[in-house]
Design a protein around this nucleic acid. Structure first.
Lengths: 108, 108
DNA sequence: CGTGTAAGGAATTCTGACACG
DNA sequence: CGTGTAAGGAATTCTGACACG
C-alpha cells in the first residue's frame, strides 16, 4: 500500500537548510506557505519543519513563478493533480476490494 | 555505481530534531561525536547537521551503550565493519574491471 | 566513562509591518 | 502580486566547565 515515504516525507528540515538547498529566500519560502502551496510542520517552539518532498515541490514552484504563473494558479494546478491521484487511489482500492471478495484473502 | 544515497545520507537535520527522533539528549549526541562515532557536518554558523543515516546509527549506538559496551569498543566494531565493506567494494571493482577489459564496454 | 546541568554568547527563526510596483 | 528589509523578541545551538561516579 502506497510508496515508501519513510524519509522523503518526513518533516525534519529547518528553513535555513531549505534556503541553501533551494536557493530561495526565507521570505519566498514563507510566502509560498502563506499561499498554501507548501505545508511545513512546526516544532514545539514554532520553527518550521520541511521534508525533502517539500524541497522538491519548492523547486517546481519556483520554476512556475519564474514563468510568470501566479501562486493562485499554481495552487489550482496542484489541486487538480491531487484530485487525479486520489481518483487513481480509489480505483485501485475498489479493484482490490473486488478481488478480495471473489478470491477471499482473509485477514486473521 | 553505489546505492541511492540521495536522501538518507544528506546532512540536513539539526540536533533538536535528532533529539526528538532518537530520544537521546543533546549531551549524548554531542558526546558520541566527540568520541568519533558520528560525523555531523556544520552550518556556516557552526550548527551540527545530521543525516537520516546518522539517526539510524545513533539508535544502534544507544543500544550498544545500554548493553554496557564502551564508546571505544563501539568505534572499533564500526571500523571493522567499514573495512569489510571496503574490501567488498574493491573486489567488485576489480571484477568489473576485468569484465570491461575482456568484453570491452567502452565509454563514448 | 557517560551524562546532567547552569552559564553566557552567538546563530537561527518568528511575526507583523512598511516599501515598491 | 511577489519580494526585500529593518525590528524586536523568542527559540535553538554552541562551547567549556563542574559534578558524580
Amino acid at each position: 500500500m502506497g510508496k515508501d515515504l519513510s524519509f522523503k516525507d518526513k518533516k525534519v528540515i529547518t528553513i535555513g537548510i531549505v534556503r541553501e538547498l533551494t536557493g530561495l529566500s526565507e521570505r519566498q519560502i514563507r510566502y509560498y506557505e502563506e499561499r498554501k502551496l507548501i505545508f511545513p510542520e512546526r516544532s514545539a517552539g514554532g520553527s518550521r519543519k520541511f521534508s525533502f518532498s517539500d524541497i522538491e515541490l519548492l523547486m517546481e514552484i519556483a520554476n512556475k513563478i519564474e514563468d510568470g504563473i501566479q501562486t493562485h494558479e499554481i495552487r489550482k494546478e496542484m489541486q487538480r493533480e491531487q484530485k487525479k491521484q486520489n481518483q487513481e487511489e480509489v480505483r485501485r482500492k475498489m479493484i482490490q476490494g473486488q478481488l478480495n471478495a471473489q478470491f477471499g484473502i482473509r485477514k486473521q
